[in-house]
């Protein structure tokens, strides 16, 4: 028990130090930016990459926080956040990761919906996009589209990409803790099956829900069947509607 307590204390100190270093990185990038020549594209790209990495580490730590202590983050009042901006921010954050696989993220339309968001809402878009990038084959496209529904006062944001096929039953199970589809395991060895579970949890905390659909087999890569996967998140607007 003492060992466990010491381990928790160690984790706490580690996260504290990581966040402090993250803050230092953010501040230094911010201070350095005005001194980088606008014409020096290489330097600016490097600076962007450092900033995105700091953002990414922060969001990763946020995910640990929200899992271990959701009450702390939920006792704050939700604030109005533009839905589209959250997804664009996640795309920026994961730009380097997408670039490594030559994956492009294409927005088919935009939405002026705002939702009542807790501070951790941004993680939802990040987790969904990270998952799509992880399972997309190289040199493919991920599309994002919004459907604003005036009747139900909600927006459904759908992310579509080619990924390892999932059965109809697996479509409901992929939001369970530590569950991975059989083809997903064959296609990508590493993975804990937690990302989509946390995404669904965050959607639920915002009175929304996430569903997945899989189209017919499209192609095979290393004998793994691939199909068009849609992951759609329905989220209610904040009071007073859109924009």
């Amino acid at each position: 028990m003492d060992k466990e307590k010491a381990g928790n204390e160690e984790l706490l100190n580690l996260m504290h130090d990581l966040r402090r270093l993250g803050g230092l990185l953010q501040t230094n990038v911010h201070e350095l930016r005005p001194f980088v020549d606008r014409t020096n594209a290489e330097a600016r790209t490097r600076l962007d990459a450092i900033e995105q990495t700091a953002h990414f580490i922060r969001k990763r730590l946020d995910i640990v926080d929200i899992q271990l202590n959701p009450a702390l983050w939920m006792q704050q009042d939700p604030v109005a956040r533009p839905l589209h901006a959250e997804f664009v921010s996640a795309t920026t954050c994961l730009r380097e990761r997408a670039r490594e696989k030559n994956i492009t993220v294409k927005y088919e339309n935009t939405s002026d919906a705002t939702i009542a968001a807790y501070p951790f809402f941004g993680m939802l878009a990040l987790l969904l996009l990270e998952n799509a990038i992880k399972y997309s084959p190289k040199t493919h496209e991920i599309t994002v589209s919004y459907d604003d529904d005036l009747l139900s006062k909600s927006t459904t944001v759908c992310m579509r990409n080619y990924g390892p096929m999932i059965s109809a039953q697996e479509c409901t199970q992929i939001f369970q803790d530590k569950f991975r589809g059989e083809n997903a395991k064959l296609a990508v060895a590493n993975g804990e099956g937690r990302g989509l579970k946390i995404a669904a949890f965050i959607a639920e905390l915002h009175s929304g829900d996430v569903t997945a659909k899989c189209g017919p087999e499209h192609s095979r890569i290393a004998n793994v069947p691939y199909a068009l996967i849609s992951v759609c998140t329905k989220l209610p607007w904040r009071e007073n509607g859109r924009g």
Partner: peptide
């Protein structure tokens, strides 16, 4: 820097907002 610990939650209700470092 440490949002995982629950023992501060009650007192932190006094804060308007919790920001990580």
């Amino acid at each position: 820097g440490a949002g995982t610990t629950t023992r501060h939650n009650k007192d932190l209700r006094s804060a308007d907002i919790v920001l990580s470092k």
